[in-house]
Design a protein around this nucleic acid. Structure first.
Length: 676
DNA sequence: AGCACGCCGACT
DNA sequence: GTCGGCGTGCTC
């Protein structure tokens, strides 16, 4: 038998291997150990090849076909459905199948064989073999060892290892198999205990659904009663209770004996979502994301695969979770850019969720307060169903939003002002009355650039050609590249002209934190950005402390904008709403709109109405204006016409081609070749 | 990605 | 005269 094996090697297609009969036939989706070059690696069987000579010769030109060393799984390790999704991703995103599978598998499963379950090769006698034993006249063609082996097998099935102990070598077994007298079956040593599928129901519902929620729930539930593929875009304003709907819908799906997959954009959001589902469904909920240790992930994977899990919650890689009988896939915050993996395999979690839903015949629910233009367009052209939640739970009002024109602020207070008068007053008032505030600035550091006053040169990263950002720190101020993380102490003089007057311009979160501490002495202020939460768990610690009201003001980048409900927050300040509008990306306006809508939604989730103060240099930019009005419809209308005029998605598909080479000239040459 | 083969500097 | 630098290229 010959099989095609996907190996975790970039740019390598599936390879062809022989399977020695003594190993049995590996299932599609089973992991196998195969020789490659000088080493032995773990691959996944992705196809069986017909054994008739001509067909297979075409596949392997020249190379000698080697044999599989070992079969690690008696049954498919990767379910057939996941294999199909991986194959689709491999074709669509132009990466090797093995590479996609490597990204899909729990880390422990791809490196060595740190596997909880061991396999035995069980040899059993075939009917033909039994007739040989019974009708002794036809025996002469077998050797003494073969006869003895067949005799043993006639009594009971035996493992290859056991036969070896009895003096029947692997070679003898191979002969028996090739003569059709015996066959080999793979069996897991530790049988998973029989588990009947008890599907727990949602426990006491905390609050009745609104009529709007109910009708949306019933519409979606109707699509899950029979297995059928469908995509629904759930557009619900912030605070409209989307999570509650996911939960109830999941309950319906589980009642139909089908399973549920929930994707969230970031690791930090899995625990909150998982908690919600655990309360309802207990330990039949598993999480999958790259933040788990290899062991945890491995265990969860096996729990999912053997059917003891009904709900999986995780980040984009969880789209490959080995669930069977999927009835529902939820993609929460479907617009979020974190769903796109920006290293190979460059897949989009949301798009693969749809492919998976198609393979599984499941309902795919894309949820967002600010749907991506791609999804929205599909919903309005009828490709997806569109469901809308316009009202917030308990009819809580949306935050009152105040736009501060920073040009006027600079004119009045000078060019160094970071916090506008309105924001300063707001912060003072909240802290005085014991309420909480969040301040967002999507830029890290103390100052964004260093400029020489004498020659106006700026200091750039020697490798990346981007401005270095000033950061504070115990050992003094340093310049750091936000691209490659390279850093140097702030120099005393300009490298270009020797001038000693170096000016720090622009500001980031560190500076905002300083300003707030100065404004509110005695207030408990914490900063959350990539610099302060580098340590594992630091983000969670801070968010938790803030939720417990052990902090008054939280300053941070967009990390603080996502997820998490802080009912005591009544003020959200956005320091430079236009950061991000300046970047050369056709999605810049969309991203700005999404971020602002999201932060405005953070204010006033409790009983008190919230206020958002948005500082900007472009108070009339449509993404800022419409976000402040929480007017998604108007934004989309405007943005779609821009996209149409410019020939951008969702009206066209774009492919980003990156050419990398040792030298600029070489890269240019390659680019020219490609263009021709 | 590994790992080998392969052609030019600092050591016994 | 060898050990070893990592530059190119292949892996069923």
């Amino acid at each position: 038998v010959r099989v095609r094996v996907a190996v975790p090697v970039p740019r390598l297609d599936a390879l062809t291997y022989d399977v020695p009969p003594v190993l049995g036939v590996p299932a599609l989706g089973a992991r196998v150990r195969v020789p490659l070059g000088g080493r032995t690696i773990t691959g996944v069987v992705c196809a069986h090849e017909a054994d008739n000579g001509d067909a297979s010769d075409a596949v392997v030109a020249g190379a000698a076909i080697k044999a599989i060393r070992e079969i690690l799984d008696p049954e498919p390790f990767i379910p057939a459905e996941v294999m199909r999704v991986a194959e689709w991703a491999s074709t669509y995103y132009l990466s090797g199948l093995g590479e996609v599978l490597a990204a899909a598998l729990p880390p422990a499963a791809r490196s060595a064989r740190v596997d909880a379950h061991k396999t035995v090769r069980l040899v059993e006698i075939t009917e033909e073999g039994r007739s040989y034993v019974e009708r002794s006249a036809e025996r002469p063609r077998l050797s003494a060892a073969q006869l003895r082996g067949l005799g043993l097998l006639a009594v009971s099935d035996l493992s290859v290892a056991h036969l070896a102990q009895q003096g029947i070598s692997g070679a003898v077994v191979t002969r028996l198999v090739s003569k059709g007298l015996a066959s080999i079956r793979l069996q897991r040593v530790e049988r998973s205990p029989f588990r009947d599928r008890v599907f727990a129901g949602v426990t006491t519902s905390p609050r009745a659904l609104t009529t709007e929620q109910s009708s949306v729930l019933e519409a979606m539930a109707a699509w899950t009663t029979t297995p059928a593929f469908r995509v629904a875009l759930l557009h619900g304003v912030t605070g409209s209770g989307k999570s509650e709907l996911y939960l109830r819908l999941a309950d319906r799906v589980l009642a139909e004996q089908r399973r549920v997959l929930v994707l969230v954009p970031e690791i930090g959001l899995t625990s909150a979502m998982a908690e919600l589902f655990r309360v309802a469904f207990g330990d039949r909920v598993a999480v999958q994301h790259s933040g788990l240790s290899a062991g945890e992930r491995h265990d969860q994977w096996h729990r999912i695969r053997d059917g003891s899990v009904d709900v999986v919650i995780g980040t984009r890689s969880a789209v490959f979770a080995p669930l069977t009988d999927l009835g529902l896939i939820v993609v929460d915050e479907e617009h979020d850019a974190s769903y796109k993996q920006d290293e190979s395999p460059r897949y989009h979690g949301r798009d693969l969720a749809i492919v998976r839903g198609q393979c599984a015949g499941a309902l795919v629910v894309l949820g967002s307060a600010t749907p991506s233009l791609e999804s929205y367009r599909h919903a309005t052209t009828g490709k997806y169903a569109l469901l809308t939640l316009q009202r917030r739970v308990l009819d809580r009002p949306l935050a009152q939003v105040e736009i501060v024109d920073m040009r006027a602020e600079y004119a009045r207070e000078g060019p160094d002002v970071v916090l506008s008068q309105a924001l300063r007053n707001g912060l003072l008032a909240r802290v005085a009355s014991g309420e909480q505030a969040m301040v967002l600035l999507n830029r890290r550091g103390l100052a964004t650039t260093v400029v020489c006053r004498q020659c106006t040169a700026t200091i750039e990263c020697p490798r990346c050609s981007v401005s270095l950002v000033v950061h504070g720190g115990r050992s003094g101020r340093r310049l750091r590249c936000h691209y490659c993380d390279w850093s140097v102490p702030v120099p005393g003089a300009c490298a270009a002209c020797g001038g000693v007057y170096l000016e720090l311009t622009g500001f980031g979160t560190e500076r905002v934190e300083e300003e707030i501490r100065a404004l509110l002495p005695g207030a408990r202020v914490a900063r959350v950005d990539r610099d302060t939460v580098a340590r594992k768990g630091a983000l969670d610690d801070r968010l938790r402390a803030f939720a417990r009201r052990e902090l008054d003001v939280l300053v941070g980048t967009q990390m603080i904008a996502k997820g998490h409900d802080f009912p005591a927050v009544t003020l959200v300040g956005v320091v430079s709403a236009d950061v991000g509008l300046g970047v050369a990306d056709f999605r810049a306006a969309e991203r700005t709109f999404q971020l602002l809508t999201q932060v405005a939604g953070r204010a006033g989730r409790g009983d008190q109405r919230g206020t958002a103060i948005v500082q900007t240099l472009y108070p009339h930019h449509y993404s800022i204006e419409f976000a402040c009005q929480q007017n998604y419809g108007a934004f989309v209308h405007r943005e779609l016409s821009f996209r149409r005029d410019m020939g951008y998605p969702p009206f066209v598909a774009l492919v980003n081609i990156v050419i990398r080479a040792k030298s600029e000239g070489l890269a240019l040459a390659h680019a020219a070749d490609l263009g021709a």
